[in-house]
Design a protein around this nucleic acid. Structure first.
Length: 499
RNA sequence: GGCCCCGUCGUCUAGCCAGGUCUAGGACACGACCCUUUCAAGGUCGCGACACGGGUUCAAAUCCCGUCGGGGUCACCA
């Protein structure tokens, strides 16, 4: 039997990190066993911009390298893959259950149910819908007046359901805890528990890996599988992803708060910041799963080879952005120059700092910048943050840097001397410049830091960055001298928020 | 509230199922030092956990019970 897994996002367009992890586990399991991964769109709600949302979801998975064997854009034999287009399946399944006596027509009104629920609440009991027995006469009357009805599942009393969950282990649940639940609304639209089972059965899903909030839902679903005479899939309920630094579940209401705190929760946040898909994939896989307790870095292939459900943790994991950032750094360091150039160029172009495609001169400058940046480059967008001044002649001084390094007695004088030194240094390369600056410091009796740091700020505007001589060489003699002149002018007029 | 799931360093986790090898291992973060013109990187060292209470046992992070804490579910939401 080949393994078939699925992920069924609702088309809001936002791929939450927890959801992506669930999808990843499904994908990994399918690939591990050489099976298929199905993408199914859960659009049972009447949503408005389904197409755009699906495009975004598709884009997210493609970016990560999670491919699907069946689903939107690729089709497949078990289609359609949009629940809104599968109403015929739900209707047919409901009819079978009706014929076999597993479901019944419920004519109850909203008011009746609300009253029951209120009574249950008042009595501090759980509310369970129980079948209302109508007389033949009532039924005839309801039918003749066309009174709307929902289809409900008649839950058998007194049974204990048993689930062997691949992550949670054996879980038992009494059917007495389950009220008769609706499978089809009066308008014929299915409810999640029903649609999900019908789809899983008709699509031949063998392993249902989903968020643990569905664990309790599984028991009514078990009843539906049974009534349909379908073979049970393996269930695996994955623990939720908690807030950073806590065991509390992330809440949708606190999204703005998280964003303010710099916590990124959507896949697209990471795409937009220029993270590497390999790193995000690696991080997500390790969140709640481990191989041997020591290995942290996994390639896509290793993940496929090593992933099993037994190694998925049964307790919640909280999102650890620092760790993701570290993994990102590890992956970035391992990338070849071409990949870094391509990734960085995109972000520079977005800022209007370079034009695509790169001309040869810009390309070789970018390569030099990337080499100089070294491990400081963690995400592609870092090239903008750390190396902007290499791609624009507009010098922007960081006020803190100016205050700390330039607003000192004698600095302007020294900068004039250094400008003169740069004018004379020949050739204008790393070794020669380094020797020249060293000699200058020695001759004038200055500490290296007192020469190098002001020179850095004078040429780049920033207090931090790659090695100074790397910067000077990449900028070139003319640009360096022009910038020094500009800095001196700025200092003399008391600019960059100083006095 | 009933029912169900979960509880090892701040965080991700190994160990738990098959009790001793655990004075609990690794990683991120954090701190110190080294290197160093800045910031990273790298190196060395350090800080730091079995939620709590009982029980079983010669022996418990591991098995059992209870408490506490977190989460889910009890919808004509998904």
């Amino acid at each position: 039997m080949t393994v078939r897994t699925r992920f069924a996002p609702s088309p809001t367009g936002y791929l939450h990190i927890g959801g992506v992890r669930t999808a990843l586990f499904n994908w990994l399991l399918a690939r591990h066993y050489g099976g298929q991964f199905v993408l199914r769109i859960d659009d049972t709600d009447q949503q408005r911009h389904v197409e755009q949302a699906v495009a975004r979801i598709v884009e997210g998975f493609r970016w990560l390298g999670i491919d699907w064997d069946e689903g939107p854009e690729v089709g497949g034999a078990a289609g359609p893959y949009f629940q809104s287009q599968r109403t015929e399946h739900y209707r047919a399944a409901a009819e079978r259950l009706m014929a076999s006596g597993h479901v019944y027509r419920d004519y109850s009104t909203e008011a009746e149910r609300a009253a029951d629920r209120a009574a249950a609440e008042k009595a501090k009991r759980a509310y369970r819908f129980r079948r209302i027995e109508y007389t033949e006469e009532q039924l005839r009357q309801f039918e003749s007046e066309g009174r709307p009805y929902a289809l409900r599942f008649a839950v058998p009393p007194g049974r204990t359901l048993r689930l062997d969950d691949a992550i949670k282990g054996t879980v038992e649940f009494a059917t007495d805890e389950i009220g008769d639940f609706v499978i089809l609304r009066p308008d014929g639209s299915p409810l999640y528990n029903f649609a999900s089972v019908v789809d899983d059965v008709t699509m031949g899903i063998t392993h249902v890996i989903r968020a643990e909030e569905h664990l309790s839902n599984t028991f009514p679903q078990l009843l539906i599988f049974e009534a349909l005479g379908a073979r049970l899939p393996v269930f695996a309920h994955v623990p939720y992803v908690a807030e950073p630094g806590s065991k509390a579940k992330m809440s949708k209401r606190k999204m703005e708060e998280y964003a303010k705190a710099g916590i990124l929760l959507y896949l697209h946040d990471y795409i937009e910041r220029g993270y590497l898909p390999e790193a995000v994939l690696n991080y997500l896989a390790r969140l709640g799963w481990s191989y041997d307790g020591t290995q942290e870095i996994f390639t896509r292939e290793e993940l496929i080879e090593k992933f099993t459900l037994e190694r998925v943790n049964s307790s919640p994991a909280s999102h650890d952005q620092d760790k993701l950032f570290w993994i990102e750094g590890e992956w970035m360091r391992a990338q070849p120059m071409d990949r870094k150039v391509a990734g960085c160029a995109e972000f520079l172009a977005r800022e209007g700092l370079v034009r695509l495609p790169l001309d040869p001169a810009t390309r070789s400058r970018l390569e030099a910048v990337i080499t100089a940046l070294g491990d400081r480059l963690k995400t592609f967008s870092d090239v903008v943050k750390l190396g902007r001044y290499f791609f624009t002649e507009t010098l922007t001084h960081d006020p803190d840097a100016v205050r700390k390094r330039l607003r000192k007695d004698g600095v302007v004088e020294m900068l004039r001397e250094l400008d003169d030194l740069l004018a004379r240094t020949e050739p204008f390369d790393l070794a020669t410049l380094e020797a020249a600056v060293h000699a200058y410091a020695e001759q004038t009796g200055r500490k290296m830091g007192d020469v190098v740091n002001p020179l850095r700020v004078a040429t780049t505007g920033q207090a931090v960055g790659p090695g100074l001589y790397d910067c000077l060489v990449i900028l070139g003699r003319e640009s360096c001298r022009r910038r020094i002149g500009e800095t001196i002018a700025m200092l003399e007029r008391g600019g960059a928020t100083g006095t």
